[in-house]
Design a binder for these strands. Structure first.
Lengths: 192, 192
DNA sequence: AGCATAACCAAGCAAGCGCTAGGCCTGTTG
DNA sequence: CAACAGGCCTAGCGCTTGCTTGGTTATGCT
């Protein structure tokens, strides 16, 4: 077992696993399916991961960490106005969500299959992401652009966006930028 | 096998199954766990259901059908104004969601474990529910109380509400009525 | 009494599961 | 050259899974 290394082979496996976990769910994806999809035998998987749980954790951790980095970049690049920052957050959220949609789908749908240890660890990552949103939304509230409680609005916003994973078709007529606009319009009080 | 009847015993099983499916997930809940929780042997389960899949389908169908009935009642009882109707919908949505939270949690989390046949059947039910929301929101838009596309706003609203299943604590300091107020305030343009 | 039916049990089958053990190549390093 | 390590394979162990079969018991109807 070579478990802790970050080899390219391991990265590739995480990508493949994300796809299968999304298509069939974690519990129904067997180690043999994963191995087949990689062109190796099932036993060889455990050269890269200690157990199946670790693969799930790696899939979610990778994608979440990546989303956090992208979101921070987007905020720092955007104009200082609340509307611009919020729009930047919404856009990059939808883009990462539907771009790396297998892995993020896993993070959304298979969260509860994590064991307690991994879940706690990943909760901190997710909290950091949510804190970024809270910060931007609370600034908007202080500027009078948002009514209501910032924490609730933050969670409503993230819920609305994450729910798009269930109905939005990236290959359809609508694009993510349009969705982001609609979300920001819904949250912010219209400036006359 | 007595499969199609609607005996009280079957109803009780559906309730128990909802709890276990929510706590451990569908795939990790074995027929032996279900039987234990009911005080019977695993084989006896198949007197009430053709297979395990049918139990999942029954859990989701029951709760969804119930939610649809409640929502229709709430709309017909509310004042004719858009705000009242939307508020009524949001309140009853959150109440059924957190009241019958095991079953609705299953509908949200375990949707993808349905087989194709069952899923299509239940999609129609869910569409009917969504249509009710669309109707109310589109009327609000025609009255100038909502900006943006009605279909998108509808899905944003339902996403925001369903997401509460992940963070809202019914035993905490906040109540569902407050949440419903916040949602309606977020969706409707503030009346001056 | 005679019968039907619903609800359940005991026992177990065939398949599939995660994971392990030990060994085989191949390329890199001293 | 030898030593090593990363990546993989073969073979299979021990266990759990959903589900089946044939039979038993309790209840109520005629």
């Amino acid at each position: 077992m070579n478990v802790a290394t970050d080899s390219p082979r391991r990265q590739e496996l995480i990508r493949v696993a994300a796809r299968l976990f999304m298509q069939q769910g974690f519990d129904r994806t067997t180690v043999r399916m994963l191995a087949d999809a990689m062109g190796i035998k099932s036993g060889s998987l455990f050269h890269h991961f200690a157990d199946k749980q670790e693969i799930l954790c790696a899939v979610i951790e990778d994608s979440t960490r990546n989303a956090l980095v992208s979101a921070r970049k987007a905020v720092s690049r955007a104009d200082a106005t609340s509307r611009s920052q919020l729009l930047a957050l919404a856009r990059v959220h939808l883009d990462t969500l539907h771009d790396d949609r297998h892995a993020h789908g896993v993070a959304l749908y298979e969260w509860r299959r994590l064991n307690d240890e991994d879940r706690e660890h990943l909760t901190h990552l997710r909290d950091a992401y949510e804190a970024l949103w809270y910060q931007v939304i609370d600034e908007a509230r202080q500027a009078g652009l948002v009514q209501g409680d910032s924490a609730i609005v933050t969670r409503f916003a993230l819920g609305a966006l994450n729910w798009t994973a269930r109905w939005f078709d990236p290959d359809g007529p609508m694009d993510t930028a349009r969705l982001a606009d609609e979300l920001v319009d819904m949250i912010l009080i219209p400036s006359p």
